[in-house]
Design a protein around this nucleic acid. Sequence first.
DNA 1: ATGTGACTTCTAGTCCGTA
DNA 2: TTACGGACTAGAAGTCACA
Lengths: 78, 78
Amino acid sequence: MKITLPALKIALSTNIKRLRKEQGISQEKLALKADIDRSYMSEVERCLANPSIEALLKIGNALEVTPCELLQLGKKRS
Amino acid sequence: MKITLPALKIALSTNIKRLRKEQGISQEKLALKADIDRSYMSEVERCLANPSIEALLKIGNALEVTPCELLQLGKKRS
DNA sequence: ATGTGACTTCTAGTCCGTA
DNA sequence: TTACGGACTAGAAGTCACA
């Protein structure tokens, strides 16, 4: 079944928030580490942005996960 | 270790080409199915584009895989 | 069937501020 | 510390033509 864009954005947002909090860092610190703007990071977490794979990669590297993991949806069985 | 943007693009390109050929469809047909431009699809496969997660989603849906699978790097062990 | 160039439009992404 | 706004610039994405 097809995934929707909102669902994907929510998955991304959830994953970022979870990983960020696990590492105990603020949105701003993460943005700094990922070398992207803090207001844009905020938009990503609020599901307002539509980031490129480059942005995804930067965030992933800052959180030490693959871009793929950032997009992982809440697990489902086939 | 950090992933580089070129590496990610190559992974994406490779995955798209592989899946597309498995399904025996042309770049053009895939572009049509994904509702994106044929020339843009060509750029993605040649690692020239930096697609958004929306574009990723469209291509993934057309190929019936998750966006996550499209970004999967050539398997490596931890 | 695909690559590529030239061009346009729109949005990704930055930078600044305020609450 | 985060949400949210406006104004701006860089680059994603669409269209068309041609090799």
